[in-house]
């Protein structure tokens, strides 16, 4: 039984790995096919799918099959950069099938902030576009993100509504998608402002995550600071030795 338990988890993880990236509503192969693919008994597949259904990653319709369940953004990852970068640190919401939504706290152009200018490698006085968002998972706050981009390369950025549009989609459409990252992660304490938005007591621990992203022309296109709820997330990565 111990062996079985480990086995179904391994199969579950492989299903997530192989099909987690599929679109919402897409049908994944049937139990028989999966059993053959992973060379396990059909009962193991059945059990793994049942668990995935409980976690909300798939839904099953009797007689029709198993379908991917997700919302517009990847349900598992609240840190788009990591998915794109594909080898960064990724913040994973601990349960699958969570519905991510954003609330824009503030956005607009800032000039004359030397700290942000130096993070973005800008000349003194060059405008910075700021986007402050709270990210919710199933209507509970998960993270507060302060993102800054050089305004000069995104001239029409002020016209967008980032509660509806994904920042990365917009940056991608403009040909300045961040591709490589410098990421730092710490555990810190919540200050009153972040505590209020994350609906936690001041001084509670929080992940503090900072990243600088560069585009294909090696230009810094993003600087982000985020405070992420520790109780709902974990960070994963692969380290080379």
């Amino acid at each position: 039984m111990a062996r079985e338990k480990g086995l179904y988890k391994r199969i579950r993880d492989r299903i997530v790995e192989d099909y987690g990236g599929w679109l919402d509503g897409e049908a994944i192969p049937g139990e028989r096919e999966l059993a053959a693919k992973y060379d396990v008994k059909r009962s193991t597949i059945k059990y793994a799918l049942k668990k995935l259904e409980e976690q909300g990653m798939v839904y099953r319709i009797r007689g029709k099959g198993t379908f991917i369940h997700k919302n517009k953004e990847s349900p598992m990852d609240i840190n788009g950069a990591a998915v794109q970068g594909n080898k960064g640190i990724s913040a994973l919401v601990r349960s699958y099938g969570i519905k991510i939504s954003n609330v824009v706290l503030a956005c607009g152009t800032i000039t004359g902030n030397r700290f942000l200018e130096s993070k973005l490698d800008l000349q003194e006085g060059e405008p910075v576009f700021a986007l402050h968002r709270v990210r919710y998972g199933n209507d509970e706050p998960l993270a507060i993100e302060y993102t800054y981009v050089p305004k000069s390369i995104f001239p029409d950025i002020e016209e967008l509504d980032f509660s509806m549009v994904s920042l990365y989609d917009y940056m991608d459409a403009n040909g300045h998608m961040p591709e490589k990252f410098d990421q730092v992660l710490r555990v810190t304490r919540l200050s009153p402002k972040e505590a209020r938005y994350l609906e936690l007591p001041v001084d509670d621990p929080s992940f503090y995550f900072e990243l600088i992203g560069i585009d294909s022309e090696r230009r810094i296109v993003e600087y982000t600071e985020s405070y992420i709820r520790c109780d709902k997330t974990e960070f994963k990565f692969t380290a080379r030795i």
């Binding site: 970068g85 080898k87 960064g88 640190i89 490589k180 990252f181 410098d182 990421q183 730092v184 992660l185 710490r186 555990v187 810190t188 621990p205 560069i214 090696r218 960070f235 990565f237 380290a239 030795i241």
Partner: peptide
């Protein structure tokens, strides 16, 4: 962390707890 060798064998599982104020994790791909 699960640590693997060149042949892909799992060699070690480590499980550390660290004080938060003395460390940070960094990954830089440029």
């Amino acid at each position: 962390g699960l640590v693997y060798d060149r042949k892909g064998r799992l060699i070690e599982f480590f499980d550390n707890v660290l004080k938060t104020d003395s460390i940070e994790f960094r990954i830089k791909d440029f």
